[in-house]
Design a protein around this nucleic acid. Sequence first.
DNA 1: GTGGTCTAGACCACA
DNA 2: GTGGTCTAGACCACA
Lengths: 121, 121, 121, 121
Amino acid sequence: MITLDYADRRPIYEQVIERMKDLILLGVLATDEQLPSVRELAMDLSINPNTVQRAYAELERQGVIYCVKGRGNFVAGINALKDKQKEELKPQLLELVKKAKKADMTENEFTELVKQFYSQQ
Amino acid sequence: MITLDYADRRPIYEQVIERMKDLILLGVLATDEQLPSVRELAMDLSINPNTVQRAYAELERQGVIYCVKGRGNFVAGINALKDKQKEELKPQLLELVKKAKKADMTENEFTELVKQFYSQQ
Amino acid sequence: MITLDYADRRPIYEQVIERMKDLILLGVLATDEQLPSVRELAMDLSINPNTVQRAYAELERQGVIYCVKGRGNFVAGINALKDKQKEELKPQLLELVKKAKKADMTENEFTELVKQFYSQQ
Amino acid sequence: MITLDYADRRPIYEQVIERMKDLILLGVLATDEQLPSVRELAMDLSINPNTVQRAYAELERQGVIYCVKGRGNFVAGINALKDKQKEELKPQLLELVKKAKKADMTENEFTELVKQFYSQQ
DNA sequence: GTGGTCTAGACCACA
DNA sequence: GTGGTCTAGACCACA
């Protein structure tokens, strides 16, 4: 279900976090569905269980999944995740707009890019 | 001219790079103007000269400044920098649009945010 | 009679213990009344009988219920339980007061919160 | 500066987190003061650097300290920490009041305990 | 030297 | 079997 990109500069555990969120957002993993166990996923990806553990712990802290001791990890609500993602996006977009302004890119140019990117795929 | 934010998670050399670009984009540093020397800036900011050196080397690699051996570092063209910034911005915006789509944010919602952020300040 | 919260971070056997105490304190389970059998409750809650067994064993150890071999588990006195709960509460409150002092919260602020929480519902 | 309690059921990293917060709240560690390095503290406490790292990472996530790469960890604002602690305390107190009500402890009894604990030491 | 990530492997509580 | 914590030790980026 998950593939890692070792050319990616970001740490493995962050990639796992992102892919899991994607799988949830795409509906591949439904609410309350069980995730692969720490050891299982570690085996699949040929990485250390500690690294998976770290990713899962962070996902739980963010409220994306919940953990039942001795049972496993499960997907929390998908809608909460979507709202969270939208909120996260705002300050990032603000930064990008600031950068655009500094480089004298007009709002029209910017919006045109948005339109173009939205229509892709 | 430059202030560092130690609470910022990014490394110091990256902050120096960004602030320098800002000063150039804002016109505070004009084309062909001389930058403070590595040692001078390191003193001013109370940081290691290695760190300033690293920032300047990266700025030169990016074509933002140029170095004359024995003379110092100078600002390259401002327009080249602006174009470069605009180009850098595109893949970042693409990523953000992808993220927005995954979270079911519509193009209208997104564009509305852009409009709002553009009109700030 | 009992519902589990899988999003709760605490282990299931602790939740069972707490719910049972609540049922007794609320008078739903009267003194000397028989509790559901280990297997029955495990079935009802779709959990492992070991987990129920563990909860019952702990409740017996605490003197909240008593076990008659071959007959089942029964509720011990409700008043003893109330006294026990009050005693348990004291060191927890002491910890909270210590924490409040460290954060410069005054006794008045604290008592005001208590008043507010007591009047809820 | 810090002592660990191996009889304490809580994990070591949590104990380190709590002690550090105490040191900051007590004013032993002032705002922007540097904390002992990960390796140094690990040596002092005879624990693994990873464990200290985990504690520091959590403290940074909570905004209690901030980290400058290659430089070290530093104390963030003390007032922000105090406010945070006060907020954390509220739901804990609410739980305790609920427990007290279930055990038929009156508000007066409860407030009397608070008074007594506040006057200790 | 400083923190950040990762592996390998152990041991524990919980189910 | 499941996750949670911890140790020992390596390697990397940053200053």
